[in-house]
């Protein structure tokens, strides 16, 4: 291994140990933080990744050829934006005494994004299938 890699690796190890030490000594509720750290891995590797595989399989069986690429691209975009939207869609942090917080109609906004993505996917499918016919 080259010197660069050794240096990077050692520096990284040192920083990670510093982070671990901070977590152990200043995290306040270490147990809860560890649960959250583990939950992220379990939810991704055990749930989200499987859902993605299932959606991919279903799409490849059900969709006609020209729609596959646009739909796949649309799902990449919309899927990640959906995860990003969970905190605001659920309005979990909303407070009756503060109307300036979470003050948009997030469901309408999200549905708008879904419609926009669907329109672009539909258009791309149409253009793609016309090109193929030529």
């Amino acid at each position: 291994m080259s010197t660069t890699r050794w240096c990077l690796g050692l520096l990284g190890t040192a920083l990670a140990f510093y982070g671990g030490w901070l977590l152990l000594t200043r995290g306040h509720d270490l147990g809860n933080a560890l649960v959250w750290l583990a939950a992220g891995v379990v939810l991704h590797d055990g749930v989200l990744a499987l859902v993605t595989v299932a959606v991919g399989l279903a799409a490849s069986r059900l969709l006609p050829g020209p729609a596959r690429a646009p739909v796949a691209a649309g799902l990449v975009v919309l899927g990640s934006v959906t995860l990003l939207a969970i905190p605001v869609l659920g309005r979990f942090g909303a407070r009756a005494d503060n109307p300036t917080l979470l003050d948009r109609d997030y469901v309408a906004g999200y549905l708008g994004l879904v419609a926009l993505t669907a329109a672009v996917v539909g258009l791309a499918t149409l253009v793609g299938s016309r090109r193929r016919r030529r």
Partner: peptide, 21 residues
């Protein structure tokens, strides 16, 4: 139930350290 500020700060070092490794 953990303190967001101290946990987010501690884990940032973990993340960057593991990223460099």
């Amino acid at each position: 139930t953990f303190s967001f500020r101290s946990a987010h700060y501690a884990v940032s070092w973990l993340a960057v350290g593991a990223l460099l490794v």
